Simulated scan of single mutants.
Amino acid sequence: MSTDFRDQPHDERDPSPWLALYLDRSTPLPDAVKAAWLRDSSSASRQYLLPFARPLARLSIVLIQLVKVLLPRKWAHSRLLHRLLAWSMRNFISPEANWFILRHFHLGSQVLSFVARNAPTPVATSPLEPLAIDDVKDELFLKHDLNLFNFVIRLNTALRAAGAELGPVAEPDFSMIVEPPLRLEDLPSGRLNVLDLQTAIELYTPVYQLLLTDHDFWRASNSLQLDETVAIYVARILAAPEHLVLLNNKHPLVPESTLRAGHRLVLHGLSTEMLHCLLSRMASGEVPLPSRALAQPAQNRAHTATPLTES
């Protein structure tokens, strides 16, 4: 199958589902991102390895949970975990999967900065912007989970203290919404770099559980349900609630089982890509801003989101 979906012939007696998904524009994704996502999703690893990896990974989660009953509650090796993740990414993960993993930290940071910059009160942010796989070693995955909860707490503490609410902004600040400086062609592409994103995440999940405390793993799993929360924040600023329709990690007040954390993480990554694309299109004027019809220019949004440095 051609890796350039535009070059694929269309046989009406045997239409390609990948070509249909690539050409479809009902969901917001840039063509380059969608092509990379579909190449990864249609890979041999995804087709033949994932059906075996997923049930084994979920069984491992159950067994590790039993083993950890016997371990000290604070037993964890976060630095070892992140060194293993970086090593496996460099040696076994496909270029597309690595691209999406590194992009996700940038996009998530930008979305939170968008909410902070357009909130009626100043809110500090903690952006994560890895430029290489080795940056993962700095406990990047754990910091990403912490950032989400810390941001929700900071934002809502500030809003409650000011007696304010998020609402439509006539001229939102999109200055932080940019393409990450990450090139797909710069990522490892050796003979063993074939593992697709979904399979890699399923295999990573029990390792994540083993090398973190139960509390850290549970929090990481349930951070995925903040997709709904952050999307509501953005929807209020843009006055565009219809863009919540593609969310799947809900409801935030009903915790999910950790057994499906791998699949939910893939949904989390894709929804972040789509939200970032939507914001990019609004920033460029490609998509009109519904908030302009509902809001007056904000008088108290001259602040900027204050970056924090976490070590």
Rank of each mutant, 00 (worst) to 15 (best):
2 S>A: 14
4 D>S: 08
6 R>W: 11
12 E>F: 12
13 R>Y: 14
14 D>V: 15
18 W>I: 11
21 L>Q: 13
24 D>P: 03
26 S>P: 00
31 D>Y: 01
33 V>I: 13
33 V>G: 09
34 K>R: 13
35 A>K: 07
37 W>D: 04
41 S>T: 07
43 S>R: 00
47 Q>F: 13
52 F>Q: 15
53 A>M: 05
54 R>P: 01
56 L>Y: 10
58 R>S: 03
66 L>E: 10
66 L>S: 12
69 V>E: 09
71 L>C: 14
72 P>K: 03
74 K>E: 13
74 K>F: 08
78 S>T: 15
79 R>G: 09
80 L>M: 11
84 L>E: 06
88 S>N: 09
89 M>V: 07
90 R>C: 04
92 F>I: 05
94 S>I: 04
96 E>I: 00
96 E>R: 00
97 A>F: 03
100 F>N: 06
101 I>D: 02
106 H>Q: 07
109 S>I: 03
111 V>L: 11
111 V>C: 12
112 L>G: 02
113 S>V: 09
117 R>T: 08
117 R>W: 08
119 A>M: 04
121 T>V: 13
123 V>Q: 01
123 V>R: 00
124 A>G: 00
127 P>F: 03
128 L>N: 02
130 P>E: 01
138 D>F: 02
142 L>H: 09
144 H>S: 11
146 L>D: 14
151 F>L: 06
151 F>K: 06
160 R>K: 14
161 A>S: 10
163 G>T: 00
168 P>S: 04
170 A>D: 04
173 D>H: 05
173 D>M: 08
178 V>S: 15
184 L>A: 00
186 D>P: 02
188 P>T: 02
189 S>N: 15
191 R>V: 15
191 R>S: 15
191 R>F: 15
194 V>E: 08
197 L>A: 15
202 E>N: 14
204 Y>G: 12
206 P>M: 06
208 Y>S: 03
209 Q>L: 10
213 T>D: 09
213 T>G: 07
213 T>S: 08
214 D>Q: 14
218 W>G: 13
221 S>E: 11
223 S>F: 05
223 S>H: 15
224 L>W: 02
225 Q>H: 14
228 E>L: 06
228 E>R: 03
228 E>S: 10
232 I>V: 15
232 I>S: 05
235 A>T: 10
240 A>G: 12
250 K>I: 00
254 V>C: 13
257 S>L: 11
260 R>E: 11
263 H>A: 12
271 S>P: 02
273 E>Y: 01
274 M>I: 07
275 L>G: 00
278 L>F: 06
282 M>W: 04
283 A>L: 08
283 A>P: 02
285 G>D: 02
286 E>C: 11
287 V>H: 07
288 P>M: 05
288 P>H: 01
289 L>R: 01
290 P>H: 02
291 S>E: 04
292 R>W: 05
294 L>N: 07
296 Q>R: 13
303 H>C: 13
306 T>V: 13
